[in-house]
Nucleic acid binder design. Sequence first.
DNA 1: GTGGCTCATGCCGCCAGGGTATCGGTGCCA
DNA 2: TGGCACCGATACCCTGGCGGCATGAGCCAC
Lengths: 298, 298
Amino acid sequence: MSHLEVRDLRYFVAVAEDLNFTRAARRLNLAQPALSRAIRQLEDRLGVTLLERTTRAVALTPAGAVFLADARAALAAVRVAETRVAAAAAPTRPLRVVVKPGSDGALLRAVHAAYAGFPPPEVSVVGCGEQAQRLRAGDADVAFLRRPVDDDAEFEFEDLLTEPRVAALPADHRLAARVRLVRADLDGEPIARWAAGDATSLRHTLGLDGTTRPLPTGPEAADLSQLLELVALTRAVAFVPASTAVHTPRPDIAYRPVDGLLPSTVSLAYPVGTKNPAVAAYVRAAWSVVDDRAALLA
Amino acid sequence: MSHLEVRDLRYFVAVAEDLNFTRAARRLNLAQPALSRAIRQLEDRLGVTLLERTTRAVALTPAGAVFLADARAALAAVRVAETRVAAAAAPTRPLRVVVKPGSDGALLRAVHAAYAGFPPPEVSVVGCGEQAQRLRAGDADVAFLRRPVDDDAEFEFEDLLTEPRVAALPADHRLAARVRLVRADLDGEPIARWAAGDATSLRHTLGLDGTTRPLPTGPEAADLSQLLELVALTRAVAFVPASTAVHTPRPDIAYRPVDGLLPSTVSLAYPVGTKNPAVAAYVRAAWSVVDDRAALLA
DNA sequence: GTGGCTCATGCCGCCAGGGTATCGGTGCCA
DNA sequence: TGGCACCGATACCCTGGCGGCATGAGCCAC
């Protein structure tokens, strides 16, 4: 009879929250069978059935409801321990955070709320793809960015959340009439892209990372509003994360899912070997937001 | 930057409590290097130095002191979660516990104190070596016993604590003049043993488990007081756990350490496949006592 | 009945975490 | 002052737990 671990609590709370193993597993960044086994092992250790499951529905048992409340309390206590020790040892200058234009402000605010107890971070906005340079130059402590970036070696990444990409089209584009597209539909269309980053992002979106296959041509933009302007003005197609599409609706732009596009990952990056407890606390704050988000995404 | 786990907290609290890696590791049933690494990794994850260590002394840093308090609180919260869920799901009859004569009453009381919230267990005392039979017959739910027992296959064991064995000799025995003995000193001496258990315990004590080597001869006793009587009356030698020696001092008996005796382990046993949450809770109560015991042994 | 959704199971591979052996530093004592 | 005992750190290896993939099995909807 082994020891109860924080992982067990996190897993159980996730399943108990949305009463669906598959979705909870996705939220926890693991496969459904792993989660099923983890919960079963937890029940075995406790000797208690926490969840009543049929193949169609999952429900909390009375004991499970009791455990859910206590598990949340225990997780909170652990989080307090993490946070307070960092605050006790880190009376340094405020953390310097870089983001790119058009980032999700709600996410940032939520992270900073969870980071309470530390001096408020200084946020600076830099051009797309320039976050890494700021970190490298020592002008920033952590950066929000979308992977991949060119130099994976010198940074550590916390992959906070992953979401599909969609195509942004002029609202009156012929393809906008379709509800769902496939890659081949876009052959020959001009593809708008980010100016910085050596088209790394576009290569990755199209799954051409290792290859030398030619990229489609198209105009370049420095930030999201420019990119969408280009789509509207030049009748190009652009790829944006699904959440961006939700946050930036425009009547002249249509967003359509495309089969075969690789998803986009929002990550937090910091230089390898970082020893600043404030950074560690910031990372944990970000994770706590991501873990708790019931419906930050679909 | 991985997640903080309950294990990390337990390890840190153990070291912070006696400020000595080697002793803390022994208490945690692991080797000192493993503990050193675990603490270092914890510090790396938090980005904070928790302990100031020289080769001669270990001291808490201010941050470490803060973390110690919070870590204890978090561990308590986890323990509450474990306990309450079991209590919620186990409104069964009281747990039936069997012990043998001469068991450590202080340990038993401490476990039952930690088991608060459940109906008080019914304790029954049976002859040495008969605990397993009670479990097998379904007359008991859990048993305190000393390993090994004959049938390791049908029970699960929680090895709570391990202690050296010592030899009990008549106080005026020629060997009692020596402060420390070796195995060969006992050649030819009669060895008193437990009546039950097929001399399993004696074989194990002498490290003859797999072999067919002949056992020394000697008288048999049913419980501890009988055993010590035999030692005094027949001038035999008996092997008892060190704590037993401490708990049962007699002017006519001398206890002497013997090099090469295998140590004795106090275990909690229950049938394999036990699903009773009360049993799980009882096991955890026992572990919490063992974990907390600052000076239950040397 | 059939297809899709969901949880369970079998099997495999990896690495975090533990063990052993050893080193290096430090205070104590002869 | 040299030897020794103690203690934490480091190097290296190895195992078991945990996660991934593929697949099975039950259940509802249409």
